[in-house]
Protein backbone atom coordinates (compact mmCIF):
# COMPACT_ATOMS: atom_id res chain seq x y z
CA UNK A 1 0.00 0.00 0.00
CA UNK A 2 1.58 3.32 -1.01
CA UNK A 3 0.90 6.61 0.66
CA UNK A 4 -1.63 7.64 -1.94
CA UNK A 5 -3.66 4.51 -1.42
CA UNK A 6 -3.38 5.02 2.32
CA UNK A 7 -4.61 8.59 1.98
CA UNK A 8 -7.64 7.59 0.01
CA UNK A 9 -8.30 4.85 2.51
CA UNK A 10 -8.01 7.28 5.38
CA UNK A 11 -10.31 9.75 3.68
CA UNK A 12 -12.82 7.06 3.00
CA UNK A 13 -12.65 5.69 6.51
CA UNK A 14 -13.06 9.17 7.96
CA UNK A 15 -16.04 9.77 5.78
CA UNK A 16 -17.64 6.49 6.71
CA UNK A 17 -17.03 7.08 10.40
CA UNK A 18 -18.82 10.37 10.26
CA UNK A 19 -21.40 9.51 7.71
CA UNK A 20 -24.10 9.31 10.28
CA UNK A 21 -23.44 12.81 11.52
CA UNK A 22 -22.75 14.55 8.21
CA UNK A 23 -23.63 12.91 4.91
CA UNK A 24 -20.51 13.33 2.81
CA UNK A 25 -22.46 14.14 -0.33
CA UNK A 26 -24.45 16.92 1.30
CA UNK A 27 -21.52 19.03 2.45
CA UNK A 28 -21.73 22.67 1.35
CA UNK A 29 -18.27 23.08 -0.18
CA UNK A 30 -18.54 26.87 -0.44
CA UNK A 31 -19.36 27.16 3.25
CA UNK A 32 -16.42 24.94 4.21
CA UNK A 33 -14.06 26.96 2.05
CA UNK A 34 -15.17 30.28 3.50
CA UNK A 35 -14.97 28.92 7.03
CA UNK A 36 -11.48 27.61 6.33
CA UNK A 37 -10.29 30.94 4.90
CA UNK A 38 -11.67 32.66 7.98
CA UNK A 39 -9.65 30.32 10.20
CA UNK A 40 -6.44 30.11 8.17
CA UNK A 41 -6.21 33.76 7.11
CA UNK A 42 -8.57 35.59 9.51
CA UNK A 43 -8.88 39.10 8.09
CA UNK A 44 -7.19 41.89 9.97
CA UNK A 45 -9.03 45.18 10.29
CA UNK A 46 -9.80 46.57 6.88
CA UNK A 47 -9.18 43.30 5.05
CA UNK A 48 -12.04 41.68 3.14
CA UNK A 49 -13.55 38.35 4.11
CA UNK A 50 -13.49 35.36 1.81
CA UNK A 51 -17.13 35.97 0.97
CA UNK A 52 -16.46 39.60 0.10
CA UNK A 53 -13.91 38.57 -2.53
CA UNK A 54 -16.10 35.69 -3.73
CA UNK A 55 -13.42 33.16 -2.89
CA UNK A 56 -15.79 30.28 -3.63
CA UNK A 57 -16.10 31.40 -7.25
CA UNK A 58 -12.32 31.74 -7.48
CA UNK A 59 -11.98 28.19 -6.14
CA UNK A 60 -14.36 26.87 -8.76
CA UNK A 61 -12.48 28.69 -11.53
CA UNK A 62 -9.23 27.24 -10.22
CA UNK A 63 -10.34 23.63 -10.00
CA UNK A 64 -11.94 23.83 -13.44
CA UNK A 65 -8.38 23.79 -14.82
CA UNK A 66 -7.23 20.79 -12.79
CA UNK A 67 -7.04 17.22 -14.00
CA UNK A 68 -10.21 15.30 -13.19
CA UNK A 69 -8.67 13.33 -10.35
CA UNK A 70 -7.09 16.40 -8.74
CA UNK A 71 -10.38 18.27 -9.05
CA UNK A 72 -12.10 15.39 -7.31
CA UNK A 73 -9.47 15.44 -4.57
CA UNK A 74 -9.78 19.21 -4.06
CA UNK A 75 -13.52 18.95 -3.58
CA UNK A 76 -13.13 15.81 -1.50
CA UNK A 77 -10.71 17.68 0.70
CA UNK A 78 -13.35 20.22 1.68
CA UNK A 79 -15.82 17.45 2.38
CA UNK A 80 -13.29 15.51 4.41
CA UNK A 81 -12.60 18.57 6.55
CA UNK A 82 -16.29 18.99 7.31
CA UNK A 83 -16.91 15.36 8.21
CA UNK A 84 -13.50 14.97 9.84
CA UNK A 85 -14.29 17.78 12.26
CA UNK A 86 -17.63 16.18 13.02
CA UNK A 87 -15.96 12.85 13.68
CA UNK A 88 -13.26 14.23 15.98
CA UNK A 89 -14.86 17.24 17.68
CA UNK A 90 -18.53 16.34 17.50
CA UNK A 91 -19.27 19.48 15.49
CA UNK A 92 -19.09 20.07 11.79
CA UNK A 93 -16.24 22.32 10.72
CA UNK A 94 -18.65 25.02 9.56
CA UNK A 95 -20.42 25.00 12.90
CA UNK A 96 -17.28 25.42 14.98
CA UNK A 97 -16.32 28.96 15.94
CA UNK A 98 -13.12 30.40 14.50
CA UNK A 99 -10.98 29.30 17.46
CA UNK A 100 -12.42 25.82 17.27
CA UNK A 101 -11.66 25.61 13.56
CA UNK A 102 -8.14 26.88 14.09
CA UNK A 103 -7.49 24.35 16.86
CA UNK A 104 -8.87 21.56 14.68
CA UNK A 105 -6.64 22.54 11.75
CA UNK A 106 -3.57 22.95 13.96
CA UNK A 107 -4.23 19.45 15.23
CA UNK A 108 -4.16 18.20 11.66
CA UNK A 109 -0.90 20.05 10.96
CA UNK A 110 0.61 18.39 14.01
CA UNK A 111 -0.80 15.00 13.10
CA UNK A 112 0.29 12.05 11.05
CA UNK A 113 1.04 12.32 7.35
CA UNK A 114 -2.52 11.99 5.97
CA UNK A 115 -3.72 14.64 8.40
CA UNK A 116 -0.90 17.00 7.45
CA UNK A 117 -1.77 16.34 3.85
CA UNK A 118 -5.35 17.49 4.44
CA UNK A 119 -4.32 20.61 6.32
CA UNK A 120 -1.64 21.61 3.84
CA UNK A 121 -3.95 20.98 0.92
CA UNK A 122 -6.63 23.11 2.53
CA UNK A 123 -4.18 25.94 3.11
CA UNK A 124 -3.10 25.85 -0.54
CA UNK A 125 -6.69 25.97 -1.71
CA UNK A 126 -7.48 28.87 0.62
CA UNK A 127 -4.41 30.82 -0.53
CA UNK A 128 -5.41 30.41 -4.17
CA UNK A 129 -9.03 31.34 -3.52
CA UNK A 130 -8.37 34.34 -1.28
CA UNK A 131 -5.07 36.04 -2.11
CA UNK A 132 -5.74 36.10 -5.84
CA UNK A 133 -8.20 38.94 -5.39
CA UNK A 134 -6.88 42.51 -5.76
CA UNK A 135 -8.91 43.66 -2.76
CA UNK A 136 -6.74 41.49 -0.52
CA UNK A 137 -3.56 43.15 -1.82
CA UNK A 138 -4.13 46.56 -0.26
CA UNK A 139 -3.25 45.31 3.21
CA UNK A 140 -0.06 43.78 1.81
CA UNK A 141 0.95 46.99 0.01
CA UNK A 142 1.32 44.75 -3.02
CA UNK A 143 0.86 46.87 -6.12
CA UNK A 144 -0.18 44.05 -8.46
CA UNK A 145 0.60 43.43 -12.10
CA UNK A 146 2.85 45.83 -13.92
CA UNK A 147 1.39 45.29 -17.36
CA UNK A 148 -0.33 48.44 -18.47
CA UNK A 149 1.79 50.56 -16.17
CA UNK A 150 5.16 52.20 -16.83
CA UNK A 151 8.33 50.15 -16.29
CA UNK A 152 10.01 50.29 -12.87
Amino acid sequence: MNRRTFLFGALGAGALTAIGAVPFALVDEDAVLLAAIDAIFPPLEGMPTGAEVDAAAAFRRYIANLPTRTRFEARGLLRAIEVGAAATTGSRFTVLDRDGRTVFLEGLLDGVFPQRLLANGLKQVCAVAYWQHPRTWTALAYDGPLVGRSAP
Binding site: I40, L44, M47, Y130, Y142
Partner: peptide, 25 residues
Protein backbone atom coordinates in the same frame (compact mmCIF):
# COMPACT_ATOMS: atom_id res chain seq x y z
CA UNK B 1 6.57 35.08 -5.24
CA UNK B 2 3.32 36.92 -5.43
CA UNK B 3 0.42 36.87 -2.92
CA UNK B 4 -0.94 33.40 -3.69
CA UNK B 5 2.51 31.82 -3.70
CA UNK B 6 3.64 33.60 -0.55
CA UNK B 7 0.37 32.89 1.25
CA UNK B 8 0.87 29.21 0.48
CA UNK B 9 4.49 29.02 1.57
CA UNK B 10 4.60 31.08 4.74
CA UNK B 11 4.26 28.81 7.76
CA UNK B 12 1.34 28.47 10.10
CA UNK B 13 -2.33 29.33 10.13
CA UNK B 14 -4.56 31.76 12.00
CA UNK B 15 -4.07 35.38 13.00
CA UNK B 16 -0.30 34.99 13.03
CA UNK B 17 -0.39 33.83 9.39
CA UNK B 18 -2.40 36.88 8.31
CA UNK B 19 -0.08 39.18 10.26
CA UNK B 20 2.90 37.66 8.48
CA UNK B 21 1.19 38.20 5.16
CA UNK B 22 0.63 41.81 6.19
CA UNK B 23 4.44 42.03 6.47
CA UNK B 24 4.63 41.10 2.78
CA UNK B 25 6.80 44.09 1.85
Amino acid sequence: GHPVGVGSMLPGIGASATKRMASFR
